[in-house]
Simulated scan of single mutants.
Amino acid sequence: MTLSVQIKGIKDGLLITLGEGDWGEVQEALLAHIAERASFFQGARVALEVGNRILNAADLGGLRDKLSDRGVILWAVLSNSPKTENTAQVLGLATRLSIPRPERVKPVDTNLPGEPTVLVARTLRSGFRIAYAGHVTVIGDVNPGAEIVAGGSVVVWGKLRGVVHAGAEGDEKAVVCALELVPTQLRIAGHIAVTPQRKGKSNPEIVRVVNGQIVAETWNQK
């Protein structure tokens, strides 16, 4: 049996989802995975999703100590079991993830026409999340595991390889632009695509909703 350990970047650190299997074996698989990528996990804050498992204080406390020995902080346990959830709370662990809503920004009076926009001049690495009510512009790459949620459009002056949601409050006129578009997942308003329809290869692209479908086209920057 193959033991499944899935890792995803979230606002508060990393979300690790443990697949089915014996608790001891799954735990060892997780620790082995962390050991293989020790530099990546060093100092990481981890939320652990354990499914329907019923775990006691010794199970969770023991894993927390082992993770701590490896420089990893266990701060939350997500479970479908009320007993496991109660045990996590007794140990001082959170049992819910915080999901911040995009901040609503009041328009600023100006002589120039425009809309609220945030500029991020850096590469967004795994675990980094931006949530903003207006447009988002990134000068740099968006790596796998990073996420952008924007009420308006998203422009990436670099490689877009993470998760992006433009028009998050329902704006189907929002677009996503990138110099290289290879997202893990892309959404515009209520439409979703893992791999948008493409035209051309390795060219800057713009993605928009056309007739209810997400379509990628060559980005003409003129």
Rank of each mutant, 00 (worst) to 15 (best):
L3D: 04
V5G: 08
Q6T: 15
I10F: 05
I16D: 08
E20H: 09
G21L: 06
G21P: 03
Q27I: 01
L30D: 02
L31A: 03
H33R: 15
H33F: 13
F41G: 04
F41T: 05
F41Q: 06
Q42D: 07
G43N: 03
A44G: 00
A47H: 02
R53S: 05
R53V: 06
I54S: 10
A57P: 00
A58T: 12
L60D: 03
G62W: 08
R64N: 04
K66T: 01
D69S: 08
G71A: 08
V72G: 01
A76Y: 09
S79P: 04
P82D: 11
L97D: 01
L97V: 08
L97Q: 05
I99D: 12
I99F: 10
P100W: 02
R101N: 06
P102H: 07
V105R: 04
V105N: 02
V105A: 04
K106G: 00
V108M: 12
D109P: 02
N111H: 05
L112C: 04
E115H: 13
L119R: 11
A121P: 00
T123W: 04
R125L: 13
G127R: 01
F128S: 14
I130N: 00
I130K: 00
A131P: 00
G134T: 01
G134D: 03
H135Y: 10
V136S: 07
T137Q: 13
I139T: 07
G140Y: 04
N143K: 14
N143G: 00
G145I: 09
G145V: 09
E147A: 11
A150P: 01
G152A: 06
V154G: 06
G158A: 10
L160C: 07
L160I: 09
V163S: 10
V163M: 12
A166C: 07
A166D: 05
A168M: 02
D171R: 06
D171K: 08
A174Q: 01
V175R: 14
L179T: 08
L181G: 01
V182E: 14
T184C: 00
Q185K: 15
L186K: 00
L186S: 06
I188T: 06
I188A: 07
A189W: 07
A189Y: 06
G190A: 10
I192F: 13
T195S: 14
T195Y: 11
N203F: 14
P204S: 13
I206R: 15
V209K: 08
V209Q: 03
Q213S: 14
E217L: 13
W219H: 08
